[in-house]
Amino acid sequence: MDALDQLVKTFFDWEAMAAVLPNMIMFGLPNTLILAVSSGVLGCILGMVLAVMGTSRITALRWLSRIYTDVFRGVPAIVVILLIGLGLGPVVRVTTGSTNPFPLAIFALTLMAAAYIGEIFRSGIQSVEKGQLEASRALGFSYGSSMRLVVIPQGVRRVLPALVNQFITLIKDSSLIYLLGLIASQREIFRIGNDAAANTGNLSPLVAAAFMYLILTVPLTHLVNYIDNRLRTGRPEKRQPDDAAALIGKGAQA
């Protein structure tokens, strides 16, 4: 039983977990969320630009979008974070005096997220029936207005589940910022767990970090399923009064 006790103590030392919890909640959680949410929002903006370029009638724009996407989807996150963070870090320090690695980490995460989100948006936009653009143009809307008012809103709605998945990836990838060097208050969930694990020689703080990630990601996973389901079955709309009347056999009034 000694071996089992040892194992339990290694992974589930409740005291060690409780010891990192205040830091996790005070610093880890907000820092992780700052990284994931800012790069998620910026990634959506840049991703939309890429998607619109990718569905453009202008060949050069489609190519630009294609090349960007291929590059940033094809390179591991860790490489991009290191190249951006370490490469641009000194420049930022000289020009602004700031040593905060957050902006560059968010920038790097945004660049990668945008490549994926751009593809998600593009597939959504392209899934909208051609008749929608045609009907909008026939009313007299320009191509840009038609995309903005008619095509993109429908396309985005269809890819919301994929978009949430991308956000889950961002939450997890945000841990890579530790490579850029963080002071105590800048540490996010992983780094806090990892530091404590290194100091105590016990893995339980890292397991606590895993739990923190799961608290963030599992509800999102279920949110994906919920959205997916609702998109498939359509929202349960209230019946119009005369529909109900028709169903029970009373004459529907016009």
Binding site: E129, G131, Q132, A135, R137, A138, F141
Partner: peptide, 20 residues
């Protein structure tokens, strides 16, 4: 052409109403 199309209404086989 956008202004021209504001002067010509068009109705399609598949209706093409905006579902959202």
């Amino acid at each position: 052409p956008d202004e021209l199309r504001q002067r010509i209404g068009m109705v399609f086989q598949q209706f093409n109403l905006f579902p959202h």
